[in-house]
Simulated assay, not measured.
Amino acid sequence: MVKPSRSSTPQPPNANPNNSFEVLPAPSESVSSLSFSPTTNHLVATTWDNQVRCWEVLNGSCVPKAAISHDAPVLCSAWTGDGTTVFSGGCDKQVKMWPLTSGVQPITVSVHDEPVKHVAYISQMNLLVSGSWDKTLRYWDCRQPRPVHIQQLPDKCHALAVDYPLMVVGSGNQNLIVFDLQFPQTEYKRMQSPMNYQTRCLATFPDKQGFLVGSIHGRVGIEHLDDSQKDKNFTFKCHRSGESGDHIHSVNSLNFHPVHRTFATTGSDGTFSFWDKENKQRVKGFSRCPAPIPCSAFNADGSLFAYAVCYDWSKGAAHHDPSNATSHIYLHSVQEHDAKPKYRKK
Rank of each mutant, 00 (worst) to 15 (best):
M1R: 15
M1L: 14
N16W: 12
E22T: 10
P27E: 07
E29G: 08
S33V: 15
S35G: 10
D49T: 14
N50G: 01
E56S: 12
L58A: 13
A67R: 14
S69H: 09
A72T: 01
S77Q: 01
T101N: 00
Q105C: 04
H112A: 03
D113F: 09
V116M: 06
K117Q: 11
I122R: 05
I122M: 07
S123E: 15
L128H: 03
V129F: 05
W133S: 06
L137F: 03
R143W: 05
P145G: 11
V148G: 06
Q151P: 08
K156D: 03
V162W: 11
Y164M: 08
V168Y: 00
S171F: 01
N173C: 13
L181D: 11
T186G: 03
M191K: 10
C201E: 04
G218L: 01
V220S: 07
I222C: 08
N233D: 14
N233T: 10
F234E: 05
F236M: 01
F263N: 04
S268Y: 04
K280H: 08
Q281T: 12
R288Y: 06
F298M: 01
G302R: 04
G302T: 05
A306E: 04
A308C: 10
V309L: 11
Y311G: 00
A317Y: 08
A318C: 12
H320P: 06
H320I: 13
H328P: 00
L331D: 03
H332V: 04
Q335H: 14
Y343F: 14
